[in-house]
Every structure is written in structure tokens, then in C-alpha cells.
Amino acid sequence: MATPLGLVLRTEAESVAAPSVHGEFGVFAGHLPLLAALKPGVVKYRVAGKDHVAAVGAGFVEAGPDKVLLLCDLFAQPKEIDTAKVQSELEAAEKELAGYGELYEGPRYEELQRQIDWCLARLQAKADNGSHP
């Protein structure tokens, strides 16, 4: 997985599940070539029989028979996520977004929606991490 800041995770995974703009998809060894747009959400991957999760922002994923490459704008592992801080960010963004009423447009509106999506992705990754032994 790579962000604009560089490579953030390199591992040999048995499977990868990622959130695309058209729903979640999974990739196993031998997968046919695939290119998809990512939406903010939780990436799940299995390494040596153990499940792992991470939050990712928007981006793209390229998969093939022996490799999956995720290029995303944001990335966070559960251990890096401060739930209280993210919850505070979420509440602030939702409060500002509520001020837009029914006017669903403009650059600031879109930025707030991206912030909300990123907050929700991190909270979900933190919650999902707790469900794995």
C-alpha cells in the first residue's frame, strides 16, 4: 500500500478485501487482472492465517495473479488511531456539514464529506481490529 508520502505497508498476504466505489471485493492468489477505484473504508488482509485491518482513503487498487497494489491518499493502522480524537473530528465535520441544509455542493461541502468518510473508515478499522483475536 502506498500513499503520496510513500510505501506504508508491504506484506505477503493470502487474501485482500478492499472497499471499491462499487462495493467491497476480495482478491486471492491467481486473481485475474483488476483495476478499481477505492473509496474510504477498511482494507482487510490475511497474513499467515491471521486477519489484519487498516483504514484507507480514496484511491485505486491494481490486482493481478501474484500482487495487489493499493494507491490511496490516506492510510492508518488501528494502533495509530486515537478513537476520541477521531470522534471529535467527526462531530465537528458533521456539525459544519449540517449547516449546509439541502445545498449539497461546493468544494467545502465535498471536503467535509471526505473528512467524514475518513473518520468513519478509521473508527471502523479500530472497531474491526478488536474483533480479531
Rank of each mutant, 00 (worst) to 15 (best):
K44S: 12
K39M: 08
V8I: 08
H132D: 09
L34G: 08
Q113C: 12
V61E: 00
L5T: 13
V56F: 00
S88G: 10
L74N: 06
K126C: 04
R46A: 09
F60M: 12
F28C: 03
V56C: 08
A13K: 05
G64T: 09
E80L: 01
E14R: 14
L97Y: 07
G23P: 01
P40F: 04
I81D: 01
P65R: 13
G30P: 03
T83G: 05
K39I: 08
S131L: 14
I81N: 01
F60E: 08
L103G: 05
G59Q: 00
P19E: 09
E62Y: 08
A125W: 01
H132Q: 13
L103R: 15
R46G: 04
G30C: 07
S131W: 04
E89T: 07
R122K: 14
K44N: 04
A54L: 02
H52P: 07
H31P: 09
A58H: 07
T11Q: 06
F25D: 02
L70R: 00
A55M: 06
V8F: 01
K50R: 15
V21C: 07
Q115P: 00
P33N: 11
E12T: 15
E89H: 08
L74E: 11
M1F: 09
S20L: 12
A55C: 06
T3H: 02
K85Q: 10
F25V: 13
L38M: 08
E105G: 15
C72P: 00
V61Y: 00
D82M: 04
S131H: 12
T11P: 00
A13W: 02
A17N: 08
L32Q: 11
A121N: 03
L74Q: 11
P133H: 14
A125P: 05
K50V: 15
G49S: 07
G23F: 05
E102D: 15
G41Q: 02
K39G: 10
F60K: 07
Y109A: 06
Y100W: 10
K44D: 08
V53L: 04
V8E: 09
A37T: 12
R46T: 12
A127Q: 11
L34C: 11
V8N: 00
V16D: 02
P4F: 06
L112H: 01
E94L: 13
G101C: 09
T83K: 13
G49I: 08
V61L: 14
W118E: 03
W118C: 02
L32I: 10
L123V: 03
G57V: 11
K44F: 04
P78A: 07
G101K: 13
V61A: 14
R108W: 09
